[in-house]
Design a protein around this nucleic acid. Sequence first.
DNA 1: TAGATTGTTAATCGATTAACAATC
DNA 2: TAGATTGTTAATCGATTAACAATC
Lengths: 217, 217
Amino acid sequence: MKSDKISEAVVRRLPVYLRFLNELHTREIATVSSQELGQKLDLNPAQIRKDLAYFGDFGRKGIGYDVPYLIEKIRHILKLDQPLNVALVGAGNLGHALSNYNAYLQDTMKITAIFDSYKPKVGQKINSLVVQPMEELGSTIREQGIRIAIITVPEFEAQNVADTLVESGIEAILNFAPVILKTPSNIRIHAADFTTDLQSLAYYLQDGKEESEHEKQ
Amino acid sequence: MKSDKISEAVVRRLPVYLRFLNELHTREIATVSSQELGQKLDLNPAQIRKDLAYFGDFGRKGIGYDVPYLIEKIRHILKLDQPLNVALVGAGNLGHALSNYNAYLQDTMKITAIFDSYKPKVGQKINSLVVQPMEELGSTIREQGIRIAIITVPEFEAQNVADTLVESGIEAILNFAPVILKTPSNIRIHAADFTTDLQSLAYYLQDGKEESEHEKQ
DNA sequence: TAGATTGTTAATCGATTAACAATC
DNA sequence: TAGATTGTTAATCGATTAACAATC
C-alpha cells in the first residue's frame, strides 16, 4: 500500500504494537504473525496487517513479521529513532509523577526540562532536573530543540501555557489539564484528562445497584 | 431518538459537554445552543445535537439548551448523580497525584480507598486516606460498595491487580499501567497510558528537523 | 410574523473486517 | 508439495455531517 493519509487511529495503535514487540524481543522471540499480535492486543489481525502495510511491506508471506526488524521500522515511523526532548510544564504532583517515566519512553524520547510558575518550586530538583521558572521556557525550548511539551498545570493556567509553548515553537502538546486548548491547526494536541475518562466509565456501570426505586430500561 | 445502542465515542463526549456546561453555569449563563457548544469544544453542532438526542429531548427549538437542566440530565446519564466510590491501587507518585483530583470528579464520585503491596507504604496517609495492604482490597471494595478502580501499579503487577479487582466484583477499571489487561467482557476497561500517547504524538512532528540527510517524503 | 435552533432523516465519509490470490 | 501467512481489494459496518421540517 504505502502512503495515503494515515488516520489517527492507526498512528495510535503503532506504539501499542511497539510495546508488545519489545516484550517479544526481550523474550527472544524472533518472529510473530498478525494472528498472534491480534490475539494479544485484542485487535483484528487484518487490521494489524493493514496498519503496517500503510508504511511498507514489513512481513513475509507464510512466515510473519521479523520482530527486531519490525521494531526498527515502527520506531522509525514514530520518529523514536532520533533524540526527542520533551518539556514538562507544571511541577506539581502529577508533573512529578510523569517525570519518573523516562525509562518507559524508548531511550531516545526524554523529559529534559521542567517548568513551574510558582517561585518556591523553582530551583527544586526533580529526578536530577532543576525546576525552571516560566520565563526560561522559550529560551530553553530553543536551546534544547524541544519539540513536544506536556502540560500538567491547573486548568486556569493551561491556555496561557499553551500559548507560550506555541510562541516558543513547540510542535505537539500532551495536555493533562481539563480544558480544550485552542491552538493553531499545525500544532498537534492530545487530551489526557483522566477525570473525563473516569466519568465516562461510570456510564457503563450496571443500573440499579446503589439506586433504589423504579428506573426501568 | 432515544435508546439504540450508544457508541463509546458518544459516551466519551458527554463528560466534555458536562465540564463546559458547568463552566457556563458558574458564569450564570442560562442557555446554550449546539452551535456555541460546538465552537467551544471543536465539534460539529449536528453531532452534539445527535449525541444528546440519543438520551432524550433536552433542547427547545429556537432557543437551545437550558444549562442547569442539561447538566442535571448528563449527570444522570453518566450516573454522576449518585455516590460513586473509587479505589486507587498503587500509592506511588502517580497514584498520589491522582488522589488530589477528587475535587474535579463531580462531588458524588470520589476516591475513597488506596492500596499498595509495598509494606512500608501501608499505613501512610495520603490526602486523609490511609494506604491499605492489598489483602484488604476485597473486603474494602465490598464494604464501601466500590465499583470503579484505578490501577497505578507498575506494569508487571497490573494484570494480577486486575484479576483481584475482578474477583472482588469491580465493574470498571481505569488502567494507567502500560499493558493490555485481560478481563471478562463484562468489565469495562479504559487505557490511560500516557507513554503511548506521547509516542503517537512524535509521529506528527515535522520531518527533517533533528535529522540531517536525505529522508524524502 | 421572522429568526433561531432543535431533533431527525438521509447522504457522506471513513474505518474495520472478510476474503483471497500471491508466495514463502 | 502442503500449510501458513502476508498484502490488498472488496464488502461491511459505523460514525459524522448536511439538510430541513417542526416549532419555539
